[in-house]
C-alpha cells in the first residue's frame, strides 16, 4: 500500500485532529470526512445524554478503533442494505454494496417475470450461507407485495450468524412479515439432495458463499483482520464429511467447493427456477459457468456485473465465450454473479 503523503495528513489534521486516524483506513480525504461525520452523529444519537466532553472522548475512542482497521459497520453496528437497515456484529460478514445491487435486480426480475406474475401461490426462496440475513430479508421486503406473497428459508452453519439474522428479522421487518422467514442451522457442504427432496421445491436459490482463496493478496487488511474467515475462505472447511467429487477435480479450484454443492442442491427439483451465485473474479465466474453448464445443461446462463441494472461501458464486453458457448454479460463493473434460469422439464435427472 502506498504511503500516505505528508501534505494530505497535514491538510486533514488542520480540518480535524481525528481525520489522520481515519485516513489510515480510508486512504482519501472525502471518505474520511464522511466517516467522521457518521461516527459523530452516531455518538450524538446513540448516547444522547452525555456531556460534550464525554461525547468527544467516545468519538476519539471510536476513531482509534477505526484506525486499527475495524470495519465502520462493526463500530456503528449496522449497514444500510436497500431500504433496510441490517445490524452488523463481529463474527458475521458485513453486507456488501455489490450484493445489494444484484439482490435488488433479482427482485425486480422476479416481479417482472411473466410466469411468476400470475402465480397465486407463494414464491419460495432459499438463501444459502445466509450470514446476517441481508439477502433474504431484502428479497422478502421487495417481494412481499406481490400477489401470492413470498416465503424465505436461510441456511447457515455459524451460530453467531443465525443469532444475528434472527435479530435482524425483528429489527428490520414489520410484524406482519416476520412469519415468512426462517433460518436453519445447516451445513451447506454436508447437505445432500435428500435434504432437498424432503423439502418443497424452491423458485429462487441464491447463494453468497465463501469464495476467496486463502492466499489471495487482494483481500484488504480490514477484511482479513476483522471479518470471519468462515464466511470468506472456503478452503478451511474442505475437510470433514465433504468429499471431493469428480466434477470438482475437473474444472474447480479449491475455492469453488461451495458452487458444486449449491448446483447439486439446485438439481433436486425439476421446476422453473433461478439460481444466483456470487463470485469473486472473472476467472471464478468462468469456472462456475462451466460447472453450472455441467449440472444444469438446459439452463440459460448469464453473468451479472457489479451493477447489473446499468448500461455497460464501451470497453466492457457484452458476452463471453466459455467452452464454445456464448454467455451474455449484463451491466457494468466487475464480474460479480452467475445466474442460471431453469425451465421445467429440462433437467435430465
Amino acid at each position: 500500500m502506498p504511503r500516505l503523503q505528508h501534505a494530505l495528513l497535514l491538510q486533514a489534521y488542520a480540518l480535524s485532529p481525528l481525520l489522520p486516524l481515519l485516513l489510515r483506513v480510508t486512504r482519501d480525504l472525502p471518505s474520511a470526512l464522511n466517516e467522521l461525520r457518521w461516527l459523530r452523529s452516531h455518538v450524538i444519537n446513540a448516547i444522547p445524554k452525555q456531556s460534550l466532553h464525554r461525547q468527544h472522548a467516545t468519538l476519539v475512542k471510536l476513531c482509534r478503533r477505526r484506525q486499527a482497521a475495524e470495519p465502520l459497520q462493526y463500530i456503528l453496528g449496522s449497514q444500510p442494505f436497500g431500504e433496510l437497515d441490517i445490524r452488523c456484529r463481529k463474527g458475521v460478514l458485513i453486507p456488501r454494496l455489490e450484493t445489494e445491487a444484484y439482490s435488488q435486480h433479482l427482485a425486480e426480475q422476479a416481479l417482472e417475470s411473466k410466469s411468476w406474475n400470475g402465480l397465486k401461490r407463494k414464491l419460495r426462496v432459499l438463501d444459502l450461507c445466509s450470514g446476517s440475513g441481508c439477502i433474504s430479508l431484502l428479497l422478502l421486503h421487495l417481494l412481499r407485495r406481490r400477489m401470492g406473497g413470498v416465503d424465505v428459508v436461510g441456511w447457515d452453519i455459524s451460530k453467531q450468524a443465525l443469532a444475528l439474522s434472527n435479530e435482524n428479522v425483528r429489527h428490520s421487518l414489520g410484524p406482519e412479515d416476520r412469519g415468512h422467514v426462517r433460518y436453519e442451522d445447516r451445513d451447506v457442504l454436508a447437505s445432500t439432495e435428500k435434504d432437498m427432496h424432503n423439502a418443497e421445491a424452491f423458485d429462487i436459490i441464491i447463494c453468497n458463499p465463501p469464495y476467496i482463496h486463502t492466499e489471495d493478496s487482494s483481500v484488504s487488511r480490514s477484511v482479513r483482520k476483522w471479518e470471519p474467515g468462515l464466511a470468506l475462505f472456503p478452503a478451511s472447511q474442505a475437510t470433514g464429511p465433504y468429499q471431493s467429487s469428480e466434477a470438482l477435480s475437473v474444472v474447480c479450484a479449491v475455492e469453488d467447493i461451495f458452487y458444486e454443492r449449491v448446483l447439486k442442491l439446485a438439481t433436486a427439483h425439476d421446476v422453473e427456477k433461478i439460481v444466483l451465485m456470487e463470485v469473486g473474479s472473472k476467472e471464478q465466474a468462468i469456472r462456475v459457468v462451466q460447472l453450472a453448464a455441467m449440472f444444469l445443461p438446459q439452463a440459460t446462463l448469464e453473468i451479472w456485473r457489479d451493477a447489473p441494472d446499468q448500461i455497460s461501458e464501451s470497453y466492457e464486453v457484452a458476452s463471453i465465450l466459455v467452452d464454445d458457448q456464448n454467455y451474455s454479460v449484463k451491466g457494468s463493473g466487475l464480474f460479480r454473479a452467475v445466474v442460471a434460469r431453469c425451465n421445467q422439464h429440462q433437467n435430465p435427472s
Binding site: 471518505s31 466517516e35 456488501r96 454494496l97 469464495y211 476467496i212 489471495d216 487482494s218 460479480r336
Partner: peptide, 22 residues
Amino acid sequence: VRTDVMRARGAGGQHVNTTDSA
C-alpha cells in the same frame, strides 16, 4: 441519465468492505 456509483478499489465483493456510498 447516467448513474455512477463509487466502486470499491481492487477486486470488490468479499475482498473489501467499503463505506463509500456516493
